[in-house]
Structure formats: structure tokens, C-alpha cells
Design a protein around this nucleic acid. Structure first.
Length: 116
DNA sequence: GTCTTGACGTTTA
DNA sequence: CTAAACGCCAAGA
């Protein structure tokens, strides 16, 4: 609940994204309790390259477009990694985005329920 | 303390 | 249908 942990929350959620799945900035923002802070999620991703084990390539905008691919080591890294995980990408856009979509507010809820 | 900048999302023209 | 503008909120200067 600490304000300064906004980035950390984002990082934690992104780490939970399973391979072959993708999510949106808005979904993460909503999950951490700031539905209007979708931009901040992307902003946090910008710093994610400093962190470790942050699959930022699995985070795209609501349309499923690889907006931040230029921010990666190389512009092709994001698309290549997604394809390696079985996610088809056509012109910087994920094919069947909704099909691969992973909603933390849903998926993580089941995990919590399973733990409880 | 203010001002600028964004890997976004929604609303209007 | 596409394009542009607005709103949103946290960090860095």
C-alpha cells in the first residue's frame, strides 16, 4: 500500500505473467489499484530493464500493439521473444491478442483462492 | 515548490 | 472508418 512501491508492484505482477501469455498496461494498473495509472505502468517498464527477470515483452497496450519494442535492447527483441513463446506477431501487433490475454485481476485471484 | 515527460486509455471530430 | 485531443498520475529536472 506504500506509494513508493508503485514500480515494485508493477514488477511483481509482470513477473507473474506466464509464458505464452500477455497483458496490458491498463490491466496491471487496475490490479494494483490505479486504473488511471496505465501510463505509469509503461513508465515502470522503462526502468524494468534495470531489474531482473522482468518479461516486459509480455506487456503491451490495450490493442495488443508492441508499443515499447523500441525501448528494448534491440527493436526486434520483443517480437522475437513473443514468437519464441508461441505468440504470433503481425506488424508489431499480437495476433489473437484477446486469446493470449492474461488478466492479473482474474488469474491471480484464482491463485489466491487456491492458496486459501 | 513548479514544470516537463511518457512502453496508455478513452472520448470527440 | 481514422486522427487528434484530453485526462490521468508518478518520476526526474
Amino acid at each position: 500500500m506504500d506509494k513508493g512501491h508503485f514500480f515494485d508492484w508493477v514488477f511483481q505482477v509482470v513477473r507473474q505473467i506466464p509464458p505464452g501469455r500477455v497483458t496490458s498496461y491498463g490491466a496491471i494498473a487496475k490490479y494494483i489499484g490505479s486504473p488511471r495509472s496505465s501510463r505509469m505502468v509503461g513508465y515502470a517498464m522503462n526502468a524494468s530493464h534495470l531489474e531482473k527477470d522482468i518479461p516486459a515483452h509480455r506487456v503491451v497496450n490495450r490493442k495488443g500493439v508492441l508499443t515499447g519494442k523500441l525501448n528494448f535492447e534491440t527493436p526486434e527483441t520483443m517480437e522475437r521473444r513473443l514468437k519464441e513463446e508461441g505468440v504470433l506477431v503481425e506488424k508489431d501487433q499480437i495476433v489473437d491478442f484477446q486469446k493470449h490475454f492474461w488478466d492479473p485481476s482474474l488469474e491471480l485471484e484464482e491463485q489466491l483462492d487456491d492458496v486459501l
